[in-house]
């Protein structure tokens, strides 16, 4: 699980990119707190062949990336 809450652009995507490039996990969860981060992480994950699901968690969002 990547916790990218409170991190400004583009840190949530950079953290996701690092995790995917490191060992291409089949499933990756990313926690963010801004809609823009949801959009950016989703766009990057989809470009890497992941399906994405977003689940609101209070003021935050949990993204689940599946290969």
């Amino acid at each position: 699980m990547i916790d990218a809450r409170g991190l400004s652009c583009p840190m949530p995507v950079v953290m996701t990119q690092k995790a995917i490039q490191k060992d291409a996990p089949a499933v990756l969860e990313v926690l963010v707190d801004a809609q823009v981060a949801v959009e950016n992480v989703t766009r990057y994950a989809q470009s890497q062949g992941y399906r994405t699901a977003v689940e609101p968690q209070g003021p935050d969002f949990k993204l689940t990336l599946n290969k």
């Binding site: 652009c9 583009p10 950079v14 990119q17 959009e39 766009r43 470009s47």
Partner: peptide, 19 residues
């Protein structure tokens, strides 16, 4: 739209994202 003059070039270099 999240328009950003620096973010456009940054994302192109960093993520190959041209949005």
């Amino acid at each position: 739209s999240r328009l950003c003059m620096a973010g456009g070039l940054r994302d192109a270099f960093l993520l190959r994202d041209f949005t």
